[in-house]
């Protein structure tokens, strides 16, 4: 597992049935692109988060394939529908096999 990886997500605590909510996610990660060279001129191998998914009660909101051109500390913002009370499930997949997860509950207003 890459060091110090910490996900942050912004999800409203409550919503009314069928409401559209804006979600924001940020995760600490170097996103080593594989394009940089070290001081000896050797290529630094790629080490990135290559996939991010968000689902609500098992239903996919977004599924993102990510390349090395996504900035350090990847940020995403997108809109989801909240049809009923439940849970958003966010997952990040690291090149090194690590999986970072976080969940947020939404109550009906």
């Amino acid at each position: 597992m890459a060091k110090g990886v910490k996900p942050r997500v912004k999800v409203p605590k409550t919503a009314s049935a069928g409401e559209m909510v804006t979600l924001k996610t940020l995760i600490s990660h170097k996103m080593e692109s594989g394009q940089r060279k070290d001081s000896d001129g050797n290529k630094i191998p790629r080490s990135i988060i290559h996939r991010f998914t968000c689902a609500f009660n098992g239903k996919t909101v977004v599924d993102v394939e990510m390349g090395g051109a996504i900035s350090t500390n990847p940020y995403f913002s997108f809109d989801a529908v909240v049809p009923e009370a439940g849970e958003f499930h966010f997952t990040w997949y690291d090149d090194d096999g690590s999986v970072y997860e976080t969940k947020k509950k939404v109550e009906m207003a």
Partner: peptide, 27 residues
């Protein structure tokens, strides 16, 4: 960019809009 692929967003049934914001690197 050296590798042109940046990201590919697949939107599911839970998406309220087919829209997204992110931050990218440009060489």
């Amino acid at each position: 960019n050296p590798l042109p692929g940046v990201a590919k967003f697949k939107f599911g049934d839970g998406a309220a809009a087919q829209a997204a914001t992110t931050r990218i690197r440009l060489a």
